[in-house]
Computed example of a mutant assay.
Amino acid sequence: MIKILGKTTSINVRKVLWTCEEAGITYQQEDYGSGFASTQTEAFRAMNPNAMVPVLIDDDFVLWESNAICRYLTRKAGRNDLLPDEPQACANVERWMDWQATEFNNAWRYVFPALGRNNPDFNDPDRIAAGIKEWNHCITILEQQLQRSGEWVAGEGFTLADIVLGLSVNRWKMTPFDKPTVPAIEAWFERLNQRPPFLRHGNNGMV
């Protein structure tokens, strides 16, 4: 059985668990990270030198990086609806996955700890304002994409792009600051809420 190492409060672990359930993959999840089993041990660093979660174990195969894990899981399950085989359709899904990991997530690196976690170490008002501006800019990019693509981020069907961005948009929605009006995103988010795995691992009160 596939093992997923990482605490369920982690946004990146929840992304992987949601993918498992969409792909119909049976898994065993074990809590690692702050407050649980340590990621700072030699044994864990041998699996992931970054000492971060999630980590996937599939027999003797070990994989880290959440988006890579999501890709692996869908291919293992033969779910080419979630990640197409055709090169251009696959690239379209992976483009939005990569954008989520690089541009979208980097936009909240300062503002989320400040406003979402109330971390006193993140108290620079100029950096908070800059982070809000960048985060909202990314949201407008996604809003424009959904206006073009229709129901789902990469086109007509639900894919991994919707999973990874669904978690990120949930974090944006739950962090308190002024936000633009995004009707296409709101409609898309309502469609995500019709999927039981999203309610378990995405829109479940956690950020």
Rank of each mutant, 00 (worst) to 15 (best):
I4P: 09
I4V: 12
G6W: 07
K7T: 14
K7P: 01
T8Y: 00
T9W: 05
T9M: 08
S10Q: 03
V13C: 08
K15P: 13
K15R: 12
V16R: 01
V16F: 10
W18C: 10
T19K: 03
G24A: 12
Q29A: 15
D31Q: 12
G33C: 04
G35P: 02
S38T: 08
T39H: 08
Q40C: 02
E42A: 11
E42D: 12
A43Q: 13
F44S: 06
A46S: 14
M47V: 05
N48V: 08
A51Q: 14
V53K: 01
I57M: 12
I57N: 04
D58I: 12
D60G: 06
F61S: 07
V62P: 07
L63H: 11
W64T: 05
S66Q: 09
C70E: 00
Y72Q: 04
R75L: 12
K76S: 10
A77T: 10
D81T: 06
D81H: 00
L83Q: 08
P84N: 15
P84T: 07
D85N: 14
E86R: 13
P87H: 08
A91S: 13
V93Y: 10
V93L: 03
M97W: 04
D98F: 10
E103C: 02
N105Q: 11
Y110L: 12
Y110A: 08
V111R: 10
V111Q: 13
L115R: 02
G116D: 01
P120L: 09
D121I: 05
D121N: 11
F122S: 08
N123S: 12
P125V: 02
R127M: 11
R127V: 04
A129L: 07
G131N: 03
I132N: 04
E134Q: 11
E134V: 02
W135P: 00
N136L: 01
T140C: 06
Q147T: 12
R148Q: 14
R148P: 01
S149H: 03
S149N: 10
E156D: 15
A161M: 04
A161F: 02
V164E: 02
L167G: 15
L167P: 01
S168L: 07
S168F: 01
R171T: 10
R171S: 11
R171N: 05
M174R: 14
T175W: 03
T175M: 14
P176L: 11
F177Q: 11
K179C: 02
K179Y: 01
A184Y: 05
A187V: 11
W188S: 09
F189Q: 08
F189A: 15
F189N: 07
E190I: 08
R195S: 09
F198S: 11
L199F: 00
R200S: 14
R200Q: 15
G205Y: 06
V207N: 14
